[in-house]
Design a protein around this nucleic acid. Structure first.
Length: 376
DNA sequence: ATGTCCCGCCACTGG
DNA sequence: CCAGTGGCGGGACAT
């Protein structure tokens, strides 16, 4: 098979030593960035998995990981076998809205045939896979057998997002894992779940949807939702990167069609890092503009380590926060929240959601208020 | 030692 | 049966 080729070719970064295997270079996060560079641009609408794997020089299996996670937030939608449609970051807000609505009523039934909440909106979109979807597991059947779908990366990613969106504080992967696991205290399950969360967190982080920090107290790594602002700001992160490293279309590898190339040279990485930080600065600035300081009030006094503006539930992204419509929206969400009692398997999840739904509502309302009084 | 998480085996699935 | 998918966890790298 083709897999006979070396996992990591020769060296090219610093022709000094024998191919230094760097785990980082192989991370899902990097792959995600590369994927974005490759497809997150004008003119791209269809993505073939084979092509992707080939272009990115990774195993097909990895593409599935990326694609599933992307799909979980609407950046991609599956068109057909081997074929995905690129939606871009602009599709995220709406996807999140749908996600959160579904999140409140929660879970299996509501959705389609695929393992994740159907994010394809009614917005003129064609949704082929939606049709024959609801064959089974409708009603209250939590879908017993094996629960393969229940464990899919995509669903997990969505639930992780819900957690982050519903919470205004840092969440460690351990905590997320146990929350998402429910009663299952099995350490093995925990380990596995956490592994998956690492995967997800890495790509979300690389998409700038979430950020990793340290928990003020425990000092343990934890994640926080940053929001979509950063992406929408100028189209997308990749677009931003491109801004700086325009002349060379991302490395000498991506563009060349040699099927089995793994090189991810450092110069390239450097460039990426560089643009990344630039991007983060912009993001920060942007967030500060929008979020003002109100977020700080919701942070522990000691957590100056990190301050992000409040995320704005989807719709808001497209309209001024001070827009009248927002209020309606808030009420709408409120209704949703009370209408659909969160029905998570485990109480922890249940409680958490009730709690956060409320917190969120307040926060949101306050943000709206603050914004008004702040703006001239 | 503990935290991350890459890698690819192999069970499922849809056709 | 086959090709496409993708759960899962061993164990290699990072800290």
């Amino acid at each position: 098979m083709s897999s006979s080729s070396p996992p990591f070719p020769s060296d090219s970064e610093t022709k000094g030593g024998p191919s230094v295997y760097c785990r980082k270079e192989k991370s899902l996060g990097v792959l995600c960035s590369n994927f974005l560079k490759l497809y997150n641009r004008d003119g791209v609408e269809s993505i073939g998995l084979d092509n992707a794997a080939d272009q990115l020089g990774v195993e097909r299996r990895r593409i599935y990981d990326i694609v599933n996670i992307f799909e979980s937030v609407g950046v991609l939608t599956r068109k057909a076998k081997n074929q995905y449609t690129w939606k871009g970051f602009t599709a995220i807000p709406q996807a999140l809205e749908i996600l959160m609505k579904g999140g409140l009523q929660e879970k299996f039934n509501a959705s389609i045939g695929r393992n994740v909440v159907n994010l394809s909106d009614d917005n003129e979109c064609r949704e082929p896979l939606n049709s024959k979807a609801d064959k089974s597991l409708e009603g209250s059947e939590p879908q017993k057998v094996d629960g393969r779908k229940e464990k899919s990366l995509g669903l997990l990613a969505q639930n992780f997002v819900k957690l982050l969106l519903s919470s205004n504080e840092l969440i460690s992967l351990d905590r997320a894992a146990s929350l998402l696991l429910g009663d299952i205290r099995d350490p093995t399950s925990m380990r596995t779940k956490v592994r998956r969360l690492y995967d997800i967190a890495n790509v979300f982080a690389s998409m700038n949807l979430i950020a990793k920090t340290r928990h003020p107290d425990s000092g343990k790594p934890a994640f926080k939702w940053i929001g979509v602002q950063g992406q929408l700001k100028q189209g997308s992160s990749a677009a931003l990167n491109e801004h700086e490293s325009k002349r060379r279309v991302f490395g000498s590898d991506i563009t060349n069609t040699c099927s089995k190339r793994y090189r991810a040279d450092y110069s390239l990485d450097k460039k990426l890092k560089q643009t990344e930080s630039t991007q983060n600065c912009a993001l920060h600035q942007n967030i500060k503009d929008n979020g003002k300081s109100l977020f700080e009030q919701h942070q522990k006094p000691g957590s100056k380590d990190f301050e992000f503006g409040p995320f704005k539930p989807s719709g808001v992204l497209n309209m001024r926060i001070s827009d009248k419509r927002n209020v309606e929206q808030i009420e709408d969400w409120d209704n949703l929240a009370s209408l659909y009692q969160p029905r998570y398997r485990n109480e922890a999840m249940n409680d958490l959601f009730s709690h956060y739904a409320e917190a969120w509502r307040l926060w949101y309302a306050e943000a709206d208020h603050k914004e008004k009084t702040h703006l001239p």
